[in-house]
Each structure stands twice: as structure tokens, then as C-alpha cells.
């Protein structure tokens, strides 16, 4: 299957076009954030504070890299399990976030929020951090520096490989793929 080239941040036309099962290559700017950063972001929003980044149209990558060696933009940089961000994701969609990249199933509440706010969930290949790092050209910590690997990074990506798991129409590749290959013994 031919991969679809898309640009991040995501515009509305792109979000509408994507379907569960699509292979995509993402270029542009995405932000990394995982457990601890999500907790802080949502706590800040709930206190009515301005978050350290404008979430409108952004794609958040659930990832905490290994340290970059001298001369590298970033170390290994594969996705972490998305389910741990389920508590926070709907709040960020409410703020305008349009895409999430991670791995693993999402809660129904997150899937419902994706349809409501128009956001897409992509999976990157878990455990392929060395391969994925090659599509990250620049990495810069932009918030929560004290969290180390869990800080928020601005990432410039080129042809970052991902698969659409949940689209805005309610389709779910994990469920559909599994049903297709499940056999009774």
C-alpha cells in the first residue's frame, strides 16, 4: 500500500481524508509528551493557565527518547503505550490537538472525543526506536526541562512512518485487524 504524505500541524482537510489502516509519512513539526508532561499540561489547563505550547492543530507524539550521542539529533525515539495518556487526551483535544502518535489501544472515551473534536490517532512501530530516529531531523526541549526524557520536545520530522489506527469516523484498525485474523480453535 502506498503511503500518504501528510504535513503536521494537521489541517482539517487532512484529518477528514485519513482512514483507519492508512499508512502515512508525516513531515513538519510535532511535539513529544508522555505521562508526567501530560499530567502537568492538563493541571495547568484546569487551573486556567496558558499551557507552554499552543495545542491548536498540533500532533503530540507519546515518546521519551534515549539521550542523543554527539552529532545525533535525537537518540532512539519510538512510541510508548498510549493508554496511559487516555485520562488526559480528551482535554487536549478540547484545546485543539488534532493528532496523537503512540502505540496500543485507546479507551472508548478517547475514541469518542476523537469523533467529537475531529482528531486522528496514529501508531508508530513500538520497539523500532533506532529506525524511527532517522526521520527526526531536529529536537529541542521547549517545556518541563526538569522532566528529562519526559520533557516536551519540539521535533522536526521528515517522512515519519505511522499508521492510522482511529479516524474521525469511528473506525479502529486494532479491532478490525484482529477480527479479520482471529480464528476459532
Amino acid at each position: 500500500m502506498e503511503a500518504i504524505k501528510i504535513t503536521a500541524p494537521l489541517d482539517e482537510a487532512t484529518v477528514k481524508r485519513l482512514r483507519a489502516g492508512d499508512q502515512v509519512l508525516i513531515s513538519g513539526v510535532i511535539y513529544s509528551a508522555r505521562d508526567a508532561a501530560h499530567k502537568r499540561l492538563v493541571e495547568a489547563l484546569n487551573r486556567g493557565e496558558k499551557p507552554p505550547l499552543d495545542l491548536k492543530s498540533q500532533v503530540i507524539y507519546y515518546m521519551g527518547p534515549s539521550p542523543a550521542k554527539p552529532g545525533q539529533a535525537i537518540g532512539s525515539a519510538g512510541p510508548t503505550t498510549s493508554g496511559r495518556m487516555d485520562t488526559y487526551a480528551p482535554r487536549l483535544m478540547q484545546e485543539g490537538m488534532k493528532g496523537m502518535i503512540g502505540k496500543g489501544d485507546r479507551a472508548q472515551a478517547v475514541k469518542d472525543a476523537m469523533q467529537k473534536y475531529g482528531a486522528v490517532y496514529f501508531a508508530a512501530i513500538g520497539g523500532a526506536g533506532a529506525l524511527i530516529s532517522q526521520s527526526i531531523k531536529k529536537s529541542e526541549v521547549v517545556a518541563y526541562d526538569d522532566l528529562g526524557a519526559e520533557s516536551i520536545r519540539r521535533l522536526e520530522v521528515e517522512d515519519f512512518p505511522a499508521t492510522v489506527i482511529n479516524d474521525i469516523y469511528g473506525s479502529d484498525l486494532y479491532q478490525e485487524g484482529r477480527a479479520k485474523y482471529r480464528s476459532k480453535l
Binding site: 534515549s66 550521542k69 537518540g75 519510538g78 510508548t80 533506532a130 529506525l131
Partner: peptide
Amino acid sequence: ENAHIARTELMPICQD
């Protein structure tokens, strides 16, 4: 391919 890159570049196979 990821395993091959990790082995040749001496990078972690997975960031975790």
C-alpha cells in the same frame, strides 16, 4: 531493519 541499525550504529534497539 531497526535491529540492524541499532547493531551498526550502537544505538538502543528501543528508547525504553
